[in-house]
C-alpha cells in the first residue's frame, strides 16, 4: 500500500514539475506580455495543484493535508484574479498585444441609433 502511494506521489511530482517547467519556459519563449500570461497560467493551475496533491498523498489524513488543501484553494482563487488584474492594467495603459489582427482591436461599437 505504501509503495502504491509513493509511486503515485512520484508520478504527481514529476507531472507537476513538468508543467511548472513548461509554463516558465513559455514565459521566456513567447513573444509578448499577453501571450506570456497564458504560459504563467499553466504554472499556476495544473503545475501547482499536481505538486500539492503529491504532498497531500505523502502527508496522509492529518492537519498537514488540511493546510495543503487551504493553500491549493487559495492559489486556485487568487491566481486568476491576479492574472486578470495584470491583463486589465496593461490593457488600460494601452499596451498593444502582439500579432492580434487590427479588426479585433477596435473599441466596442456603442452606437445606439
Amino acid at each position: 500500500m505504501e509503495m502504491i502511494i509513493d509511486l503515485a506521489s512520484w508520478a504527481f511530482i514529476l507531472a507537476g514539475v513538468f508543467f511548472i517547467f513548461t509554463g516558465t519556459l513559455g514565459m521566456l519563449r513567447l513573444p509578448d506580455f499577453y501571450t506570456r500570461l497564458h504560459a504563467a497560467g499553466i504554472t499556476d493551475t495544473l503545475g501547482t495543484e499536481l505538486l500539492l496533491i503529491a504532498m497531500m498523498l505523502q502527508a496522509g489524513w492529518s492537519i498537514v493535508t488540511v493546510k495543503l488543501l487551504m493553500i491549493s484553494l487559495f492559489i486556485f482563487f487568487t491566481s486568476p484574479t491576479a492574472t486578470h488584474a495584470l491583463a486589465n492594467a496593461a490593457n488600460a495603459v494601452g499596451l498593444r498585444p502582439f500579432g492580434v489582427p487590427e479588426a479585433d482591436l477596435r473599441p466596442k461599437t456603442t452606437e445606439k441609433a
Partner: peptide, 24 residues
C-alpha cells in the same frame, strides 16, 4: 465567469463591460 475564463490557460479575460467580457 471571468475567473473561469482566466483559469483555463489559453484564454485570459482582459476587460469587463456590463454584459461583455474582452478576452485575449
Amino acid at each position: 465567469f471571468a475567473n473561469s475564463i482566466t483559469l483555463t490557460p489559453g484564454t485570459v479575460s482582459v476587460d469587463i463591460d456590463d454584459d461583455e467580457i474582452l478576452v485575449h
